[in-house]
Design a protein around this nucleic acid. Structure first.
Lengths: 330, 330
DNA sequence: TTGTATGCGTTATCAT
DNA sequence: ATGATAACGCATACAA
């Protein structure tokens, strides 16, 4: 009894079940077929341990049930949780995820888009800062946090509202003099609006504010120097700081408490942005403007899978919320 | 000039270049071909923006340049960084990664293995706690942290050595009475050896120790009660605690400092396990036994891609190290 | 060295 | 409703 025939094909199943090839295909795809036939086929599939080859299927039907997902890395907890959520949405729909990390390298990003196209995926979801990303019009692409133009849907948090909310919360907690710290590219991406919202919030509330914005690649020491400049007699000019990310808030908090002897939140309150939690699911790492990752993921998947053209939205902005994480007064 | 022909195929390239189909195939695959032909073909490829279909290629040659990677989730920073490292290794070799998250659900895990096989991947790298995982012998599988048997290679940290190192470091820092806290399944997986190593370390150094081990799914309150039982007159019986993961160390530290009024590391020193850093790449979240993620990833990829059988190792144990993260004395 | 022809496993279109 | 057959895009063995 040689069971050695390498990997069973639909033809083997057909022979085993004593039916025709097409019948097996129908059973596999859930198309209507005689009850007795279905049973015979199912038994044969079970016996041979048969699995459809998605390569043959993809070749034939141009449908791969695979979505490529591209983010800078999986080191940053924000990106990893985002990918985790996207993965959930995809599995729920029986889709697979082809994962690519770009390390912020534009060449790498472009390369990966090509790879993804070659793989003939059903769609691409990407978080890219490359302004010149070339993408074939054949494969649906959804962008996160970066608006590429009307023909490419973009899903983002309400960054503007979040910036404004940060200003409001700080003032609500008694702050009289605010600062905004940001590091990032000059490229116009959605997170830039955090600054604009913050300014709008400060001006609406008539609270003085100072901006310190440095370029990507500049060392954080620029921020420490900035803080030192505003540090006199053991007292900081600001009593409220809005940091453009939770990661930065963490670093700034360390500088304030460990090097300048200040207490957080008693002397200075800090609000970050993203909603990162310790170990992914414990407390927030700092008081923060929380991005709705589940909603972002759901919208991305929904968009990338839905047929294009039918009055597709160009930009979807999702609501953020405030999360307390110990760096503001309760 | 209608450029509208949907997606170009090798045949289109051949026609455009005025050569035969096989010639194009050879150029694409880097096989020897006449210089002038190669140029014509390359120009045609460029002009038509042609990409080989990896589905057709996979169907034909049973080589997909794709590895399936399966871990419980991308929420936990340890898993995400691991996947990040694996991804690096794979891209460096021009391989793609098909990503699956299991959420610790055995049924889900089994389902995903089937999906992966259906996808006809070149191999699977998985971190699974399912003891009954059925896997087809046709596709190479490498396991992380869980030994399934001699026929499935397993890559893990030196958990035993790490447990021992934790005990040694605590004693080296002056601890006289140690505790080990662990939550986890009773299944025999590699991390279980952390306990054994810790015990060995304590006994070698002749230091008293207490173990508190609870089952997966039990709430952490069991640990808090345990600590309360050993808390008298504002003083804890233990001056050194080894937690089975950094995540647990974080929670325990919070309980000690916020609810019991103890100082870390002055009153109690804590060592975790994993080497998790704040935001993925900043300081360690606690003093910790660091797992060599890059080495683990490199070994997994190396193993899964290398042809099987040739005296393949059953278990690869990689060296850990000690990382200071503020919860031990310097 | 280049061209031709066949088949990979599936789906879909036909007849039956 | 079921069975036979062509075609999907590519690689390869073989013929020129």
């Amino acid at each position: 009894m040689s069971e050695s025939k390498s990997v069973p094909t639909m033809k083997d199943v057909a022979r085993e079940a004593g039916v025709a090839l097409g019948t097996v295909s129908k059973v596999v795809n859930g198309l209507p077929v005689g009850e007795d036939y279905r049973l015979r086929v199912e038994k044969a599939i079970e016996k041979l341990n048969y699995r459809v080859s998605s390569y043959a299927r993809g070749l034939r039907s141009n449908k791969t049930y695979t979505i490529a997902v591209m983010v800078p890395n999986l080191i940053s907890p924000f990106f990893s949780k985002l990918v985790n959520c996207i993965n959930h949405e995809l599995s729920a729909r029986k889709y697979r995820m082809l994962f690519y990390a770009t390390d912020y390298d534009p060449a790498q990003e472009q390369e990966l888009v090509h790879l993804a196209e070659q793989q003939k995926v059903d769609g691409i979801i990407c978080l890219s800062y490359n302004p010149h990303l070339q993408v074939s019009p054949d494969v649906p692409l959804v962008s996160i946090d970066r608006y590429f133009g009307a023909q490419i849907p973009c899903v983002a948090s309400d960054n503007y509202g979040g910036g404004r909310l940060a200003a409001e919360k700080l003032v609500e907690n008694g702050c009289k003099n605010l600062a905004f710290l940001r590091i990032g590219s000059k490229l116009t991406n959605e997170p830039n609006k955090r600054k604009d919202g913050f300014i709008a919030g400060c001006e609406a509330l008539d609270v003085p504010y100072t901006l310190k914005i440095i370029d990507d690649g500049t060392p954080y020491t620029a921020f420490f120097e900035f803080l030192e400049e505003h540090f006199h007699d053991g007292k900081l000019d600001f009593d409220g700081i809005f940091c453009v990310t939770d990661s930065m808030a963490h670093v700034i908090r360390g500088a304030l408490t460990q090097h300048m002897g200040l207490r957080v939140p008693e002397d200075v309150q800090i609000i970050g942005f993203d909603g990162v939690r310790h170990f992914g699911d414990l407390e927030y790492t700092c008081s923060t403007i929380v991005q709705p990752l589940e909603a972002i993921a759901a919208n991305c998947v929904e968009l990338v899978l839905s047929p294009r053209g039918e009055n597709a939205p160009a930009l979807i902005c999702l609501p953020v919320s405030y999360g307390w994480g110990g760096t503001t007064r309760e």
